[in-house]
Design a protein around this nucleic acid. Structure first.
Lengths: 117, 117
DNA sequence: ACTATATATCGATATCTGTCAATATGGGGC
DNA sequence: GCCCCATATTGACAGATATCGATATATAGT
């Protein structure tokens, strides 16, 4: 029942003016994405994937120390959050991290990080 | 019962070699911090605080649209995650964002972001 | 002391989520 | 077709958490 203005934020501008506070809808979206990072198992999965160029899901079960369904569940959450990509290779599925996604998430919260240099 | 090596990561090196995957303990810590960002109410609170230099807690209840105890609870979570600072001024408490904290969180997950410039 | 206001804590409840065992699905090779 | 393997889904349960009303604490002013 909420009428809300979801602004199209100028994403490719450097040093945009301060963004207005998040609306309910934007906040809900962002929260879902951050929730994907709010679990130890998923963080370890993400870092395991990041430490390879690409990695088969079958190589993630044992180092994570959780059951295969649990790992599958967490991979799905990471995938749906856009934090990892997946690709079939025969009967295996290979995952790779999407670091750009992480940057964009943070950019929504901290639109004006200190300019590097 | 877990014996775990918590590495002191070279934080002020540019282009450090790839970090080893997160251990259980590091992951649990990081997850707690990201969990503070995994809620729409807290994200809106954080963005409200960020859009001021400093802001009184009493000015946050109405724009958030939640009860005062709920706002107090969320502010505590943000504070304990190190994402905001607080300061008494008379009977009010003023909050300000700590953007550096956010950067450090992400740095633990993406130690090698594309070099700016 | 008392009152008023700002903030925090408590207790209860509804909802969400991480985990597993069991089962289902889907591909590859025979 | 059948079997084996990798992955996904289902169902159930325990633990976490967002929310509120009621209450407590703290500060300022009288």
């Amino acid at each position: 029942m909420e009428k809300e203005l979801e602004l199209m934020v100028g994403a490719d501008d450097c040093c945009t003016p301060p963004l207005p506070p998040l609306g309910e809808l934007q906040a809900a979206d962002l929260a879902r994405s951050f929730a994907a990072l709010a679990d130890p198992a998923r963080l370890r999965l993400y870092s395991l994937i990041s430490s390879h160029d690409a990695v088969c899901a079958c190589e993630l079960v044992e180092p994570l120390g959780r059951s295969q369904p649990t790992v599958s569940h967490h991979l799905k959450v990471l995938y749906e959050a856009g934090l990892v990509e997946r690709e079939r290779r025969g009967s295996w599925i290979w995952y790779r991290a999407v670091p750009d996604r992480l940057e964009r998430l943070v950019a929504q919260l901290a639109p004006r990080l200190p300019v590097p240099g």
